[in-house]
Computed example of a mutant assay.
Amino acid sequence: MTVQALILAGGRGSRLGDVRKGELRIGGRTLLERVTERLGDLPAIVSTGPGPTGIGADNTIADGTLSFGGPMAGIAAALRHLHGAAEPGDLLLTMAVDTPFLPRDFAARMIAALDGGAQAAYAAWGQQIYPTNAIYRLSGLYPLLSGTMPDSPKRLLQSLGAGPVDWTSRAAADPFVNLNTLADLIALGRRARAGDE
């Protein structure tokens, strides 16, 4: 079994003035660098959204044309990219690029959540759920390539009977808080300066 990691970095950052979130800096490092380093040695592909991108890495894939965009367009692009290269028994671990405090044990705990045979699981902080930070069995996703693709990760997870993996007992502050506005950027910068890594 191989774990395929997918960083969802295709958002337009419209509430931040149409900037690529992955290129924003928190604590002196870009969001993409921060999320990538949380994966340790796990190789990752980066979904960059449609059109040209400033991300120059070899491991990037552009979103395809779907009737919807957002994270599901990135997941669909990854499935097309992996189909034929990854085994159905492999796992797809997804995370949002704008999650600068992603837990260092994220991959290990999410992989363990599927030990009992579940098809998928998602991250949670108490009642707050994070459907873009999730894990799936590719065997449950590949059929979507020839059928109907749900229009959101939340609906996809519901269709697979996914359950939460809760971090409230493991972290003093929400490790999945994400960046959508200038106020978020300022608050997360303060959090990084305060030593929350």
Rank of each mutant, 00 (worst) to 15 (best):
M1P: 13
T2S: 15
T2L: 14
Q4W: 14
L8I: 14
A9P: 00
G10W: 04
G11A: 04
R12Q: 13
R12M: 11
R12I: 10
G13K: 01
G17L: 03
G17A: 02
V19Y: 03
R20T: 06
E23A: 15
R25P: 04
G27L: 01
E33D: 06
E33Y: 01
E37Q: 13
R38F: 07
L39D: 04
L39N: 07
G40F: 05
P43M: 13
A44E: 02
P50D: 12
P52G: 11
P52Y: 11
G54T: 11
D58Q: 14
D58G: 15
T60K: 10
A62N: 12
D63G: 01
D63H: 04
S67M: 15
M72L: 06
I75A: 00
I75H: 00
A76C: 11
A77Y: 02
L82Y: 06
E87W: 13
P88W: 01
P88F: 00
G89E: 12
D90Q: 05
L92N: 07
V97G: 07
D98G: 00
D98Q: 00
T99Y: 03
L102Y: 08
L102C: 13
F106H: 12
A108L: 03
I111L: 03
I111T: 13
A113R: 02
G116F: 01
Q119H: 14
A123E: 02
A124D: 02
G126M: 03
Y130S: 05
T132N: 13
N133A: 15
I135W: 02
Y136I: 05
Y136T: 06
R137H: 05
G140P: 08
Y142D: 00
L144P: 03
L144G: 03
L145S: 14
L156D: 10
L156H: 07
L160S: 07
L160K: 11
G161P: 09
A162Q: 04
G163Y: 09
A171P: 05
A172I: 05
D174T: 09
D174Q: 09
P175Q: 13
F176K: 01
N180F: 12
D184Q: 04
I186H: 13
A187W: 08
A187D: 12
L188W: 09
G189Q: 06
G189S: 10
R190A: 14
R191W: 01
R191Q: 04
A194P: 08
A194C: 08
A194T: 09
